[in-house]
Amino acid sequence: MTERVHTITRPVLEVSDLNVRFPASRDWLGRPTSHVHAVNGVTLQVRGGRSLGIVGESGCGKSTLAQAIIGLAPYEQGRVAIDGQDFQTAQGRQKRDLRQKMQIVFQDPQSSLDRRLPVWRLISEPLHIRGGHSNAELHAKAEQLAAAVGLRPEHLDRLPHEFSGGQRQRIAIARAISTDPDLLVLDEPTSALDVSVQAQIVNLLLKLQRERGLTYLLISHDVALVRHFCDDVAVMYLGQIVESGPADEVLGNPRHPYTQTLLASAPSFETPLPTLAELRIGELPNNRKLPTGCFYRERCAKAVAGCEAPQVLQRLGDGRRQARCHLAQG
């Protein structure tokens, strides 16, 4: 545990100017003629033992960002570094070691678990792939991990279909922590679960973070969950981060017009339903052809002259917060 003091200061995950695009159509030679621009220049940093939440509407690129970080989506531009080592340029053994340092938990534990493998094999699969363990060792390791996530030893020989959604998500979490990773990417880990089960999973994840000094990147559309779970938050819109900073500050006093709309629409016990005038009807613009200037301009209630220029993330006030809006400074 003396190592933990060490890990708190250095960034476990560094993403700089990441761009991810997918070919949307091709000509007769198979060359792409247009692209879906899913992630457009994302730069972020998560320090050891902390949690960063990414919020935004569906289609804003938050899941693609998670997949690019974990190495599931290829990218041409930008850099992702885990513990200071570039993932994309790593080769062979180094790349395999880097893979072990980050793991992902998906939204739907029904489809992310192989339904023909018993639980102990599911949990120890990453170790099995790494190699060098006997079956008995894997089983023993699986038993330890199962206990850490609150599964009982008799569960180990069962198949995934015998479990409820919450327990399946526990299995997925046990599998994710099996390689002792530094970074855990959580892609909507509780959106398929009921609130009472969500509470159990959230508690488990917070407990694991305290015990193991894990670093979390939480992708979610649930503002209340992010406020509860994360130290920092980044709000995404059309593949860009439009606002970021400490969670309580950004979600308590949003400066970007999009963050303000998002928070006003989030269901809440304290505030009544917003009126139609307060809500902005509209959807994310087409991401095949990115808009010029500020991406949010067409939906923005506060659009003025100056919004037709591309917006950059500016530091606000004390420098811990950033917003991509020229009006947010004042």
Partner: peptide, 23 residues
Amino acid sequence: QALLRCLPERVAPKQELEAITGA
């Protein structure tokens, strides 16, 4: 009461949520 206590809206950040035990 238990259902409302599970909600992250109603507790301080990072505090343990009161999950409903059992199934």
